[in-house]
Design a protein around this nucleic acid. Sequence first.
DNA 1: GGCGCACTATGACAGCGGTCATAGTACGCG
DNA 2: CGCGTACTATGACCGCTGTCATAGTGCGCC
Lengths: 198, 198
Amino acid sequence: MTVSERGARERMVFSAAQLIRREGVAATGMREVAAHAGAPRGSLQHYFPGGKEQLVNEAVEWAGRYAGGRVARFLAALPEPTPSGLFAAMVRQWTDEYASAGFAGGCPVAAATVDWAESTVSTRAAAAQAFATWTGPVARALTDMGVPEERAGALATLMVSALEGAILLARAEQDVRPLATVATELGPLLDAAVRREG
Amino acid sequence: MTVSERGARERMVFSAAQLIRREGVAATGMREVAAHAGAPRGSLQHYFPGGKEQLVNEAVEWAGRYAGGRVARFLAALPEPTPSGLFAAMVRQWTDEYASAGFAGGCPVAAATVDWAESTVSTRAAAAQAFATWTGPVARALTDMGVPEERAGALATLMVSALEGAILLARAEQDVRPLATVATELGPLLDAAVRREG
DNA sequence: GGCGCACTATGACAGCGGTCATAGTACGCG
DNA sequence: CGCGTACTATGACCGCTGTCATAGTGCGCC
């Protein structure tokens, strides 16, 4: 409740997400998280008595909320909201980062799924929840744009899948080309799903 | 050159790929690979003097060749080859595995990218190469079906991206729904890219 | 038999991981 | 002042990892 709790605890979760998305879950150490957050090592067991499992899960949940929250911001920034415009904005966030900061990081939820989900069930569940809190707002945005409800969910899944995969390819190739490709190829398909009215 | 070399060495690479796609690269130990392959521990430094880095890279390359090779088999099994049919076959391989063996494994190339690429440059390059040897045959198949060359590469990237992302979501959700979704949603788009002749 | 080569077998080592135990500080409250 | 609570500080422990060193086995070949 104090300021320091909001500060140190939250900072450690944030740092965990940052490190996880760069190095992976297994390669990210607890001491490393504390150091990156500028937090004392002793705070780890104070704030996260559940150990690494708890810290990782909270980082994954944080990432899910972050991604879901971005959707509203993207929509607000679009002059005229269209499905392709939303997807382009989602993709652009990554092309911008890769252009400015290099290809060091990926999606923390993807990292947790790939390299921790099998051994730690709660983390797998947290990843599923994170994807849900991400695709949810996307699907809602699509329906608001006139996409029929029965397709909005499917298209949101497609958008997130294509984006995650493109992030993967882009990191491997060290090139934003896959990201640009999925944005341009998927755009028309997404816009075509809008129910024409009048 | 002897039988045992083909046997033990290859088996270890295969086992490495298997373990990596389940647990991730960092969580997969060398001793574990040898045990899984039924190979003696001493063979590790004999066949892979480059250490874990070499073993991981070979596993990634093997996975890339495997994925690329599957494309031809999928095509051969299709009564009438269409882009959507090829993509459906690629997706079905994963839905079948998840249905029969559970959601334990993902794509080893994705695992290597997410959790080893940042620290080991050669592995990142191997992952990029693996993706290239996978998308290559896909793009070639598309052109053979009548997709214009300038779009075939882009669509191949889209297919692989969507598939990789859907694998991720499916593992997290423990449900093949994302895989089925991308297959049905992307099918029409892919078929529409075929150059209508006559 | 003797030599060389491919392969196998172990044991040790140094480092790092997460976690636990224990103690110490700071501060608000009565 | 005394006490409790929140937080910090360290150090130790044990298990595991990749790697190296050293020695041993089997087999073909002269």
